[in-house]
Design a protein around this nucleic acid. Sequence first.
RNA 1: GGCGACGUGGCCGAGUGGUUAGGCAGCGGCCUGCAAAGCCGCGUACACCAGUUCGAUUCUGGUCGUCGCCUCCA
Length: 462
Amino acid sequence: MTLKLHDTLSSCTGAAGGDGPLRVYSCGPTVYDRIHVGNARPFVVAMTLRRHLIRQGRPVKVVINVTDVNDKIYAAARAAGIPSPDFAAEMTGAYIADTDRLGLGRPDVEPRVTGTMPAIIALIETLVESGHAYAADGDVYYAVASFPTYGALSRQRPDQLLEEGRVEVGDGKRSPLDFALWKARKPDEDAWWDSPWGPGRPGWHIECSAMAMAHLGERIDVHGGGLDLLFPHHENERAQSEGATGEPFVSSWLHNGMLRFSGEKMSKSVGNVARLADALDEWGAETLLLLFARAHYRSPMDYNDDTLAQARAAGDGLREALRALATAAGDGSGDAELTDEARRRAAAFDAALDNDLATPQALAELHQLAGAGNRALAAGAVSARAGDVVRASLLDRLEVLGLAGFGHSTAAPEDVRLLAQQRLEARAARDFARADMLRDEIAARGFAVRDAPDGFELVPTR
RNA sequence: GGCGACGUGGCCGAGUGGUUAGGCAGCGGCCUGCAAAGCCGCGUACACCAGUUCGAUUCUGGUCGUCGCCUCCA
């Protein structure tokens, strides 16, 4: 099985990675605020890829950085009245905590800009020495004209960009297209580092080149991030990295589509954001993960109550199937057919993910298996043993998507069981008014009661 | 204006030159005291206009529309 990914540079879908661990770098957040749901998408994509490969025993190394020095951080810290390093540390902690709640685990390395300063400065020095960069009054700029294929990744033409005249003209810049690798310290900036060019801090793009190379080497397999980072961020990263090494930097540039909120991109600058933590509070990790998985990572996707409710409903179906399989006690006449289908669907799930992380299709395989299980179960044809096998195979793949929690069932507490028992008795006495009242009471305590041949079943609501 | 992505049934979302993706919602039925869950049945969609073809949702050209980037942005 070969992993194929779509590469933005070539706009082709092709084999990703060779021998050795798949080296994946994905642009993480700038921690000037709590992250929103859109910020979580590249994290989910990278971690899904990681989990998919790990489940199959294929080696992978995922690096997602944290940008903890930046203009916006200075500004936000100032507004909050605390030192910017403290502010950045606090927000970094919040980012870790928020993404932890998704239940996808952590990347292998999560480097901070502030912890990578020597590598960043060394990379800038290399670029200066090789003529790709020049110093000017304590700033250092990348000379875009020195990189012939600048614009190839984002399909921008340098002459066209210049014509637009929208690029910022810096004081010491030779060309308006040039961008800062190092920025001299400004008087009100309370975090800075010494460098050959004087005190200051790195520009936005150089950090990612340095961190990727520091942890994955000069050539990496996959570089991910939001489509909105394509230009200028990734274009500049490519120019820096390849300028420094003279070699191709990335085999597959992976760009995820934007989340749309009310028809527009969810973005802090637009102001239409839903914080990840709030979304998790309201909908839970599983519904959010399912929402992401239901759309291909490159497609734009709508984030709203309707799409979330649909994701939740789809999840409920899988949850039900798992619950039912756990209670299988049939004659086993359908075992062979069902376990065979489970094998086929599981393989198809893997193949779908190998095909440019086609999560909607992968999910469809699971839904089909769930349906097959329900049908066989309804026919009383599934033995307890086969039920377990199929259930385990379903959970095994759901785990890749972070959805193994669908298999957990909350046992009803004693008081709820007592109410259900009383309802059973009321029904036996044909006191249906009382039975319905007890059902409402049970519902108020978070459980749905279902009649079963041998009594009742209590299922947690949500 | 430049560059790019995309337009599939009520919604989400695969896919293919001629044969049912799947899910959710909806309707009818089975089951149930009523439900819930599950099962059975039901929708012939592919933006528009031309062209190629025996045949196009799938190929070609054009039109329209949506979104993104071109500026901090996942």
